[in-house]
Amino acid sequence: MNKRRLSKITPYILILPFLCMMSFVFAGGLLQAVVQSTGYMPVFGMYDVSLRYYVQLFSNARFMSSLWYTFYIAFVSAALSVSLGVLIAFAVDKSRSGESLSYTLYKVPIIIPHIVVAILVIQIFFQTGIISRILFALNIIQDATDFPLLIYDRGGIGIMLAYLYKQAPFVTLTVFTVLKGLNKKYVQVAQNLGANSFQTVFRVTLPLLAPTILSTFLITFAFAFGAFEIPFLLRSPARLTLPILAYFDYRSPVLAHMPAAMATSVTISVISLSFIVVYMWLLRAMTRRGMEGGGFL
């Protein structure tokens, strides 16, 4: 084989292990879920192939409320994480403490495991938690029951607090990296032309950051949509997010729940995949308008 032909197949050889992993583990797993969601489970003597489990799901009040609840949690926590994260990115940029200790410390939540974050949220925000004790010491509340229920609550506040803690620094890190590399000339031109700092941020910097902000929003949204540990440990017994619902159905001893779990799983995957399509579409629209790309994706 001559060298020229070898160099032509090189990239395919290099990418092969990744493609194997994606087809056998990732696609293989999803395909398995798709097959079983139709009710085809020969191991248990179930051979009927149909879409009835999907029909049942979408007419099931528990599933539908879970679906909207998951969207609500993902949307609110992603919106808060991105807003706070961008704000802190600006603060980091302004404080120019690029080398100092606090510049390292703000990244701490990124490496703390989700399970540990759940413990901390319980200890700090539960009715007998640290915040409640501080309010008691300040005479603002007279009893633990005066403190609102923020964990295991129907509004999912504890879950969202945990996401916020984990995801805001991730947004900051990504946005700040792009912010540092942004062409500062645009800002200088705007200032020379008499723009105040408010106008500079909203008319120049933020539009330049838009693709990055969009991509971090998508990642934090998708993560909050599909995460397991945090809603599993901080959930209200009355309301479950879709991944938890799928998990409980999957582990249920009732055999008929199995295809339902698979159908839920497939629904979660299809929704997540549609995020990517929306993202690609928005990104293309933005590049057409001359915005620079960047960010995690």
Partner: peptide, 24 residues
């Protein structure tokens, strides 16, 4: 296409992939 593939394990929830994978 491969560049999009790289993103999938971040975007598609782990529980969905794992539930399917357990059987394989």
């Amino acid at each position: 296409f491969v560049k999009i593939l790289v993103l999938l394990p971040i975007i598609v929830p782990g529980i969905a992939v794992t539930i399917g994978n357990q059987i394989s």
